[in-house]
């Protein structure tokens, strides 16, 4: 995949709108203020994914949803275990620590969060582009980030030599605790033409 500078800039803007919408649903679910960075865009060869994602053996909590329709891609929300724990406690309104690995209530709360965030992301994209988009049911993984990314990348049975990743950091800081997550969008090659075509780029 080759993408011109101009197209990457436009894509960043699109993802900025989508992530902003995802961040505001996160904010209303958690009833707190969420800070969001502007999206970073990476076009990296497969063997250098750690440039974009950091250490690939870091344990992370990942929510993964497929974006289907006119401009397909993959959306992920990546959290460290501590942040995921705080978010689950807030969602379930429960003061005690939760075993993120085993607790099924925690798993459904996280999946619901992924669902709401990616829905908001996709709704924003669909609204201004006029492209019809659907999302899959959410999948949850708790493991090494690299292992989950490889499964996400080859999920459809094919993978580009260079991966285009757009990521936005979302964070909250409350009186006693801070937590953060990374929202990732990996558009499929054909999706770019569709999304950017709206702007005539």
């Amino acid at each position: 995949m080759n993408v011109s500078e101009e197209r990457l800039e436009a894509l960043k803007e699109i993802v900025n709108i989508g992530s902003g919408n995802a961040a505001s649903s996160l904010s209303s679910m958690l009833q707190t203020r969420i800070e969001m960075t502007v999206p970073k865009v990476w076009l990296v060869p497969l063997n250098r994914l750690s440039d974009a994602l950091g250490r690939l053996d870091e344990p992370k909590v990942v929510l993964f949803l497929k974006v289907e329709g006119g401009a397909p891609g993959k959306a992920m929300f990546v959290l460290d275990e501590n942040s995921a724990g705080i978010i689950v406690r807030k969602l379930l309104r429960q003061p005690d620590n939760v075993d993120i690995l085993k607790d099924e209530m925690a798993h459904s709360a996280l999946k619901e969060l992924g669902n709401v965030m990616v829905s908001s992301f996709v709704t924003a994209l669909a609204t201004f582009s006029g492209i019809t988009l659907q999302i899959s049911v959410p999948a949850l993984g708790i493991d090494m980030i690299g292992a989950m990314i490889d499964a996400v990348l080859i999920e459809g049975g094919r993978v580009d030599d260079n991966v285009l990743i757009l990521n936005t950091k979302l964070s909250a800081s409350e009186a006693s605790e801070e937590y953060e997550g990374m929202f990732l969008f990996i558009p499929e090659e054909g999706a770019l033409d569709k999304l950017l075509g709206v702007f005539g780029i």
Partner: peptide
């Protein structure tokens, strides 16, 4: 270190490592 979609060859005393295999 061997990245995704890559391979490396070597001789002792080298060790070959790849990080975070999922479905790969």
């Amino acid at each position: 270190i061997v990245g995704m979609a890559d391979y490396k060859v070597g001789k002792t005393p080298a060790k070959l490592m790849t990080v975070g295999l999922g479905s790969c």
